[in-house]
Design a binder for these strands. Structure first.
Length: 241
DNA sequence: AATGTTTACAACCGCAGTTCG
DNA sequence: GCGAACTGCGGTTGTAAACAT
């Protein structure tokens, strides 16, 4: 049977988001959290589909995003991880707190790929991705564990990075996992692979958890992030209710 | 200054996985 | 166990700014 489209696209706006739309979405999520993306646009007064709202939030509006150019250390790390993981951008993004998989994918495709080509190197990496031979379908469940286990045997080095907003995802995890202590004073290190195995939620997912946890005091992270958000990108959020 | 081309990034599409009734 | 709804992911396309002519 055919799959229903994610939304009724008739009358929905597409393309670049306006400042006003960003405001509406941010405002809504900060005030209400996310229960169901499908309902977000309607409740937030947006003529967008839920999927589009989710993407906009995840890739652009999330307060914990680190924006700006990739450092050389990050690029090196990216090349290293790509040679191990292949195009599994979400997995790679887990090593770059504050970066999105989309951002990493774009950066790879537009810059690093080109750089490597200029150097006469194969952008796909000298060695096949470690999951090569695995069926893509097997990436869930055991598949990921294999990847992580293999990586854990030969972990990539930790690279220190500064969070622009002075927060890290593990800040929020600390309440449930006191053993994590990477993020003191707004600094963090990339998680080790054993960390990854232990806690599959990093950067992106940690934020989701906080939004989605109904028990969690939403104002906790909202208060933490709101200052950086208000000043971010010159957008005036004085209308925040 | 006008036009064409390139580049970087944002956004969309469609499929697969997960969750839930 | 099944199917529908929902979410996440990766590939691809669109778009606007930067640059070249």
């Amino acid at each position: 049977m055919g799959r229903r489209p994610c939304c009724d696209k008739v009358g929905l706006k597409r393309g670049t988001w306006s400042v006003e739309e960003d405001q509406k979405l941010t405002n809504f999520i900060l005030c209400n959290g996310i229960k169901c993306w499908r309902h977000v646009p309607k409740l937030a007064g947006l003529l967008r589909c839920g999927k589009s709202c989710r993407l906009r939030w995840m890739n652009y509006l999330r307060p914990d995003l680190k924006r700006g150019a990739f450092s050389e250390a990050e690029e090196d790390q990216l090349v290293e991880l790509h040679s191990r993981l292949g195009n599994r951008w979400s997995k790679i993004a887990a090593f770059f707190p504050g970066r999105t998989d989309n951002e990493i994918k774009n950066h790879w495709n537009t810059r690093i790929k080109k750089k490597l080509n200029l150097l006469g190197l194969d952008p796909q990496g000298g060695e096949p991705p470690i999951e090569q031979g695995e069926n893509r379908d097997a990436k869930e469940g055991g598949g990921d564990i294999d990847v992580d286990q293999k990586l854990a045997e030969n972990p990539v080095s930790r690279v220190e990075t500064r969070h622009d907003h002075g927060h890290s995802c593990s800040d929020h995890n600390s309440s449930t996992k006191a053993s994590r202590e990477d993020s003191d004073a707004g600094w963090s290190t990339f998680p080790s692979l054993t960390d990854l195995q232990f806690d599959s939620c990093l950067s992106r997912s940690s934020m989701e958890k906080y939004v989605l946890q109904e028990d969690c005091s939403e104002s906790y992270w909202i208060d933490d992030y709101v200052d950086s958000l208000l000043s971010w990108d010159g957008i005036n959020f004085n209308n925040l209710e």
